[in-house]
């Protein structure tokens, strides 16, 4: 343990985060954002903004995974985003009380 990772495995971890990782996390963040973003003046910002921002979220994750020299930070940021947003969505689904479903306007 504590042995530094080989360049090869570092490279593969980076590819994992820049490739499939960025796609999955962007989608999960989009879903989770709808639950915490303020609803705004018309009550739709939380629904519309994630839809608009998802290409940019993906691009940010992709370039971060490529360019951040500290691999731990790449993994940290990505996994925190994934856990927080995935957790929000999971919480919503596990919490099956009818009150948790947004009332239809």
């Amino acid at each position: 343990m504590g042995r530094p990772m080989s360049d090869r495995s570092r490279k593969w971890i980076r590819i994992l985060f820049a490739g499939p990782g960025a796609v999955i996390i962007a989608i999960v963040v989009m879903a989770g954002m709808a639950l915490w973003l303020p609803r705004g003046a018309a009550g739709i910002d939380n629904l519309v903004l994630p839809l608009i921002l998802v290409p940019l979220i993906w691009a940010a994750l992709f370039f971060h995974a490529c360019l951040d020299q500290r691999l731990a930070r790449v993994a940290g940021v990505a996994l925190v985003l994934l856990v927080v947003h995935g957790g929000l969505v999971a919480h919503k689904f596990l919490d099956r009380k009818p009150a948790s479903v947004e009332p239809h306007p």
Binding site: A31, A34, L47, K92
Partner: peptide, 26 residues
Amino acid sequence: FFGTIGVPIVAMAAFGGDVQALNEAV
């Protein structure tokens, strides 16, 4: 991506998968 991925996923998160409800809200 709006209709193919975005709307179904946001509808899933916010309205339990009811796309019609999302359309109605927006």
